[in-house]
């Protein structure tokens, strides 16, 4: 799975298999979140959450249902305007930016319920997502200038590469809505990846997948981090997946940060056990 796509060849990639990112001491903060608070009227959905994502990390947010995990996601990706707190991405303050602006900066997300362009084909889904990389000049498109053709060709190549990556090449011209659920999930991730993000935010990517598909997802996410220069933040309930792939885990309970640490630390944290299993 280590073949690199020609389009990504000119992008700086982490040294493949030579260095383990976690052992690298030069840590580079990609996303820093301080005191993130989100109030809906009197209800405090998120209360002073602090997050930190380093470049090349897989960070998970876990917590019981209704803990406010998705609300955190919505704040980070600009779907909600946080009531309080600060979000810094690559040192730049992006608190309260519009969602499409944030995704243009390189933070792209998936949704808890798959949000594909259902009546468009799989391939079109991937072409649409590359909108900002394409030649969108009206006249050059109307007259099919060489520059436009090249841009479309590249988009198609990129789409083909990712289709192959998520095993959907056969389905390229099927309507996205007709895919099986697991395939739709994979397509959604591929659709994020063609935008060439730096940070991928996955909201319950394993929900509704069978064990085999979950395992494949696990491999895919690790591959994205190792070979495609993305950091991943994910919300997930599948503990096996979370513990296996996470570099760092944040636990949120009732909107409030409960604990954070490596999978090992979280597993043995008494507060976390209490929150999940109730008082003993």
């Amino acid at each position: 799975m280590s073949k690199a796509h020609p389009l990504h060849a000119n992008q700086p990639r982490p040294l493949e298999g030579v260095l383990d990112m976690s052992s690298q001491n030069k840590k580079q903060n990609l996303l820093e979140v301080d005191d993130l608070t989100m109030r809906f009227g009197g209800l405090i959905a998120v209360n002073k959450v602090k997050l930190n994502v380093e470049k090349g990390q897989i960070v998970s947010i876990i917590g019981p249902n209704g803990a406010g995990k998705t609300t955190v996601f919505n704040c980070l990706t600009g779907f909600y305007k946080p009531s309080d707190g600060r979000i810094r991405y690559r040192g730049e303050n992006i608190t309260g930016s519009k969602n499409h602006e944030i995704s243009l900066k390189g933070i792209v997300r998936t949704f808890q319920h798959v949000r594909l362009f259902k009546s468009m084909t799989v391939l079109e889904n991937l072409l649409v997502a590359q909108h900002r990389h394409l030649n969108t000049n009206l006249l050059s498109g109307l007259f099919k200038t060489p520059a436009y053709r090249r841009s479309e060709r590249e988009a198609l190549d990129c789409a083909a590469y990712w289709l192959d990556k998520v095993n959907l090449t056969e389905m390229a011209n099927r309507d996205a809505g007709n895919l099986a659920y697991g395939q739709q999930r994979r397509l959604e991730i591929a659709r994020c990846m063609v935008t060439r993000p730096d940070m991928l935010m996955l909201d319950e990517p394993a929900a509704g997948l069978n064990p085999q598909e979950t395992k494949e997802l696990d491999e895919l996410i690790c591959d994205l981090r190792d070979h495609h220069d993305v950091s991943v933040m994910l919300i997930e309930h599948d503990m096996k997946l979370v513990m296996e792939i996470s570099d760092h885990i944040y636990v949120i309970n009732q909107g409030t940060p409960l604990a954070d640490g490596t999978p090992e630390q979280i597993k043995n944290n008494p507060d976390v056990i209490k929150a999940y299993l109730g008082e003993a």
Binding site: F117, V128, R132
Partner: peptide, 13 residues
Amino acid sequence: EDDIACQSLGMNK
């Protein structure tokens, strides 16, 4: 098809 997904992919609605 889906305006929310559109924005999340960086398209200006």
